[in-house]
Design a protein around this nucleic acid. Structure first.
Lengths: 341, 341
DNA sequence: AACGTTCTCGAAAACGATTTCACGCGGGTG
DNA sequence: CACCCGCGTGAAATCGTTTTCGAGAACGTT
């Protein structure tokens, strides 16, 4: 059916080994023969069989990417970074969408092992990393992105979420806000937890006392924001002048809720998010948020991974990238009543 | 290093062939031996080597997915559908992000051939399908999504763009609009062209004469919409009461432009888009648009593809899915002046 | 002229599975 | 009783590469 290295060898009047050597440049080959080989390759339209090569070389030049939801713009951006870096370094990428389901995640890691991927770039869905531990137990390379899972010492590339959230709080405090509501992410997801802590630290820094009634937990969805905003408002009895959400999608939900009740952003209440997804700059008013170096997360992760595949390091390395505050128009000075406090 | 079928065979006191038979259920095996084999598999933690299997069976159980930009929510949604369907049918998926660059696209198809993927799901970037033709020339299965490329008769799953665009026009006409601006997509991209035609037909249906000055071409970006809206306004000399864009992203750009100049949507001008990306329902006002059955596009494409891989059909089949008008709040009755006309 | 070295290259052995082939063995049939 | 068939099984061939091993050729050195 398809043309093999042997066909090329026969056509060029050399042995299969020589063809291989020419194609891979592993060992010098006489110029004349080399030319004959290359010509035969071109003439027969030979395309090496990657499967056979991978089998022999015991490396597949393939990486696995597992994300909770490729439809989430944040993960989509990460995926793009990962994809770009992988192909640049000569690796192909198998995409796995776990849908936040731990069971599917487990299945995927199994499939990826069968496929003999050389390494795994991973945004774990749940809190418990059983599947991940099973992976690491076999000595397979893996690097985590965005989140880290307790009790697993692997490479990881994350954002400094605590710092990022503090930037937001500082920004709001400087605008005169004193009563700030917080919409957090699910407990146990490390990035969400860090942002929670960052918020608290930000308040403390400004000499403000946190009120637990003004801090709610969400699941990163639009609906969460939609419901949380009025709830926070009510809990604050009219003192609330700002809401910061742990993700842009939730912030957009909050913004919608405010609009629906006739409020104006930022005049009535300032709103800030986290992630800087594309929609953040598209809505009206454009959302103040924290931009993560998403592309870079993906790229660094892959670089770390192929480094480990090549057996460079032995101790896990932990990269923390600095996020950046992006001030747009959804945040403004606290209204007089709120500023007076 | 890793445990092979031979290790299992030795441990179970049978031959390698028997182990294979047990694992694949190709041929009946005595219950006693079968049990011993399964136990040995479990005990040794054996995991079959997919590369070896693929090499022998001459099928990789892998598909390739090539999209212009995974970051674009429309393609992200498609990717999700493709991923889900692939894995459900037992295939893995190699992700390729062409970045709309024809050259990268060509490279990718090459890599995918080397990897011996069983088939390709493809959203072509450019107009000229050289790479695609090269692919099809080798008799490799491929199914196109969203767009179709001239002169290539392959399977395809598309939306009825013409019909979708007519739905929008009818909707606006029913609201009393008589002077409607159009922001189209790049010439040569079949889906964009079809929408263009659909718009014209919609006007004709309503007995309205198209004005070429009120139809501009864009490239599906936010900036296009941002610039096009004022331009259309100017060209219409105040008669314009509605704008329909060939994509939501452009519609959002147009909406922003209107807001920036102090206009209101839909009071000053109605705006409609196409695609129904997530952001469409998140903005204020929520965008009237045409929803494509995105998830289904991906899934149908994969089903078609594995059908072809299995050698079911021989003639290319062409699936056209019906889109659906989603009326939100960015469109409203034409203002009196416009309605009078 | 004899003798290492270095280069180049082919034969054959991997890589780890599946599949073909042939064979032994019971049991039903004429 | 001879024959044939179907079942379960192992040995060996196969998928298409890369890599090891060893050998011949070419070359420079003393």
């Amino acid at each position: 059916m398809s043309v093999t290295v042997l066909d090329v060898a026969r056509a060029a009047g050399v042995s299969a080994s020589t063809v291989s050597r020419v194609l891979n440049g592993t060992t010098p080959v006489h110029a004349a023969k080399r030319r004959r080989v290359l010509q035969a390759v071109r003439h027969l339209g030979y395309e090496p069989n990657g499967l056979a090569r991978s089998l022999k070389q015991r490396k597949s030049l393939t990486l696995g990417l597992v994300v909770p939801d490729i439809t989430n713009p944040f993960f989509a951006e990460i995926a793009k970074g990962v994809e770009t870096a992988s192909h640049r370094l000569g690796y192909s990428l198998i995409l796995c969408n776990s849908g936040n389901a731990v069971e599917r995640e487990r299945r995927y890691l199994e499939v990826l092992r069968e496929r003999r991927v050389d390494g795994l770039v991973f945004v774990p869905a749940g809190r418990h990393g059983d599947a991940l531990r099973a992976w690491a137990a076999r000595g397979l390379p893996v690097v985590l992105m965005d989140r880290v899972v307790a009790g697993v010492a692997s490479d990881a590339v994350t954002t400094d979420n605590r710092f990022g959230m503090k930037l937001v709080v500082r920004h709001l405090v400087r605008l005169g806000h004193r009563t700030i509501g917080f919409i957090g992410g699910p407990r146990g997801v490390s990035s969400a937890d860090e942002r929670w802590v960052g918020f608290l630290e930000g308040l403390r820094e400004a000499g403000l006392a946190p009120e637990s009634r003004l801090m709610v937990r969400g699941d990163f969805t639009f609906e969460t924001g939609l419901r949380a905003a009025p709830a926070l408002s009510a809990a604050a009895r009219g003192r609330l002048t700002a809401i910061v959400a742990s993700s842009d999608v939730m912030a957009l939900g909050a913004m919608r809720a405010v609009h629906q009740r006739g409020g104006r952003v930022p005049e009535t209440v300032s709103i800030a998010g986290f992630d800087d997804i594309a929609a953040a700059s598209l809505v009206q008013p454009p959302l103040t948020t924290v931009a993560q170096p998403v592309r870079e997360i993906g790229e660094r992760a892959v670089e770390l991974l192929v480094g480990r595949v090549a057996g460079e390091r032995t101790r896990p390395s932990f990269v923390r990238l600095k996020p950046r505050l992006v001030v747009r128009h959804s945040t403004g000075p606290a209204p007089a009543s709120g500023a007076r406090r």
